[in-house]
């Protein structure tokens, strides 16, 4: 059942061209929760001197993961779009390592879903970035 849900989620992500271009992979898909992995790739480098990926790539990962968490919330509605997203960068992601985002949709009103997310590399104890966002909730009229 959970594996079927994860597969459906992966198909959903692969239908998003930008997520496909980044090579995003759905790792876990729970109720109001999603985990997505961004593999390291040279085309994502933001600092040529260190090989660290650009913050923007982490933003794209966080946005996708947060949106997926909203979509998988029981009250998440038919569709969603980002209203705002704030990202705090704690430290550079280690070059060569994948970045894993974990997002939780912790509250949903009739029109708005609230999400928080964390991004980690192999050192799970020290997050690379955290994010909070507000998303629209599309409902049948």
């Amino acid at each position: 059942m959970d594996e079927a849900r994860r597969k459906a989620g992966q198909r959903f992500i692969e239908a998003l061209p930008h997520a496909r271009a980044l090579g995003l992979r759905l790792v876990t898909f729970g109720e109001g929760m999603a985990e997505i992995s961004l593999p390291y790739h040279e085309s994502l480098i933001g600092d040529p001197q260190t090989g660290v990926i650009h913050g923007g790539a982490v933003s794209a990962l966080m946005d996708t993961c947060a949106g997926a968490a909203v979509m998988n919330h029981p009250e998440g509605g038919l569709g969603t779009a980002t209203l705002d997203l704030r990202i705090d960068y704690m430290r550079p992601a280690t070059p060569g390592q994948a970045v894993l985002a974990h997002a939780e949709c912790y509250h949903v009103t009739r029109s708005v879903a609230f999400v928080r997310a964390t991004a980690m590399d192999d050192d799970r104890a020290r997050p690379v970035a955290t994010a909070t966002g507000a998303f629209t909730v599309e409902r049948k009229r």
């Binding site: 650009h54 923007g56 779009a81």
Partner: peptide
């Protein structure tokens, strides 16, 4: 096409938009 998030509308991916603005700032 690879910047698209929602292929049904279609609309740019919010992540691509965020990245674009962050690149511009830096």
């Amino acid at each position: 096409e690879k910047l698209i998030g929602n292929p049904l509308l279609p609309a740019l991916h919010g992540g691509a938009t965020a990245a674009f603005l962050e690149v511009t700032a830096i």
